[in-house]
Design a protein around this nucleic acid. Structure first.
Lengths: 103, 103
DNA sequence: AGTGAAATATTGGATAACCGATACAACTAT
DNA sequence: ATAGTTGTATCGGTTATCCAATATTTCACT
């Protein structure tokens, strides 16, 4: 049966949004996603996303020389989050008001 | 450069949500999506989605024998929208409050 | 009836998202 | 120092989403 609410295509957006609120490591993100959707994404899912976001200049390491790398948004990343958020709201226009119901 | 807010993976959800508000045809949906995201999805995008949603028992034709087929949700479809909406809200937890800002 | 337009349907193919497995690096503890 | 643990990184492969092109149906108009 068709799945109607998979994550495909929005993972990088979610990750970016999460980092915009708190500095986060790959593990932090995996853990947070486990909370939100039940299943913990594979390392092979998260780290390529982080790499790609880094290469796009949206995020940067904010802890250097440590085992655990925390990431934060760059200025460019902040702009990206802003515009992506706008697009998101336009696309999911009819979802507004739903969040309040889903407590 | 990485795109952060593509539609991939959520199209069927959006379509289902749209149909839950109004009876809609394939063309209606294409037109509405053009409004929301600027580009009009190809017929080869929309109709297979409708077919699949129909085969899953989520939607049904509510105009019979007409050129333009309008679809409405089935009972099963309504349940699906409900549960998918819940998942959506959990997944995009931190988007709550964004809709108000994006006027 | 015949032509054209509009909506629907289908098919093949490209893309990329995601996973599983594996490997590597860094810290910890005995 | 060695072993074990935890976080990070990479690679190959599968799968599904979406598009372009094309075909089919249905209606309108003359």
């Amino acid at each position: 049966m068709r799945k109607c609410c998979e994550m495909k295509g929005f993972l990088s957006f979610i990750v970016l949004k999460m980092i915009s609120k708190n500095e986060m490591s790959g593990e932090d993100i995996r853990e947070e996603l486990k909370q939100r959707k039940g299943s913990k994404p594979s390392p092979g899912t998260i780290y390529p996303v982080l790499k790609s976001l880094h290469e796009s200049g949206f995020i940067q390491e904010c802890t250097h020389g440590h085992k655990i790398k925390k990431y934060a948004l760059t200025k460019k990343g902040k702009k990206e989050v802003e515009s992506a958020t706008k697009k998101f709201c336009e696309l999911f226009y009819d979802m507004r008001g739903e969040f309040e119901k889903c407590v």
